[in-house]
């Protein structure tokens, strides 16, 4: 029988959401239209419309060593062109953000090629060739993985994922990169991910309501949603892994 990946254990809707996001055959729901220009502005690596600076000549113009791996792996567009490595970084609030660093890194590894995810407790960074990054970032920012209020695009000063939300339901951001427009009831970015003011603001649309966030989150949180202990299947799996690792480390004969 062919192997069918199960992606994640668990019987709650949180586990189900994780499975959906991790499964590359599941198409991520699109929540907002973000233009290519907006993505470039948000990341702040180059001016919109300018050429991609390169780190090396295009692969077609340089002599490649006779390497079997290089023959096997098709280079991505960015690698072919010799683009620089650039990044985008996300901060996900613990208060029912739709995604979080661990799942982000896993799902990106399943879905995208030629990128390097970095996972930390409060932020997650993805590094890859510039034009690949823009393609991936557009999907990440426009899809259900990002909520306008509870997910931040932050290259630095990321502090805020574990803090209480403010009265408008926004995650704390010391640099005030994104602000809540009370009139429009929507969120807009007025600074790029490293806190440099933007010439034109980037509209991210309305934040999703609590009901949607509760239904779509991938975070176990006993106070604002479902706690890890409420998922017996997940606990059983974690305990099994823990037990096997301890036994293997201490008593391999068992």
């Amino acid at each position: 029988m062919a192997y069918k990946p199960q992606y994640f254990p668990g019987s709650t809707h949180i586990a189900e959401n994780r499975r959906k996001q991790l499964d590359p055959s599941h198409k991520l729901e699109k929540l907002r239209d973000v233009s290519d220009k907006d993505i470039v502005l948000l990341m702040g690596h180059r001016a919109p419309g300018s050429a991609y600076p390169s780190a090396h000549p295009p692969l077609s113009e340089q002599q490649e060593p006779n390497c079997p791996i290089r023959k096997m792996v098709t280079p991505t567009d960015g690698a072919k062109a010799g683009d620089r490595i650039r990044y985008i970084q996300f901060t996900d609030s613990m208060y029912n953000a739709p995604c979080h660093p661990y799942i982000r890194s896993y799902l990106e590894s399943y879905r995208y090629r030629g990128m390097d995810p970095g996972t930390l407790s409060g932020r997650q960074i993805i590094e890859c060739r510039e034009r690949d990054l823009e393609k991936y970032a557009k999907e990440l920012v426009g899809s259900e993985l990002l909520d306008a209020a509870r997910t931040g695009i932050r290259g630095c000063t990321v502090h805020g994922h574990s803090l209480r939300l403010d009265e408008n339901g926004m995650m704390f951001d010391m640099l005030a990169r994104f602000v809540f427009d009370k009139k429009a009831g929507a969120v807009k970015y007025v600074k790029n991910q490293v806190g440099e003011p933007l010439d034109s603001e980037v509209k991210m649309g309305k934040p999703m309501d609590d009901k949607w966030l509760k239904a779509h989150t991938t975070i176990y949180h006993s106070l604002v949603g479902v706690g890890t202990r409420d998922d017996p299947e997940l606990i059983e799996y974690i305990q099994r892994i823990h037990s096997l690792r301890v036994k293997y480390g201490n008593c391999p004969m068992e």
Partner: peptide, 10 residues
């Protein structure tokens, strides 16, 4: 301690 961080008006 409020459930949310407080706006200046509050």
């Amino acid at each position: 301690a409020g459930e949310r961080l407080l706006n200046p008006d509050t």
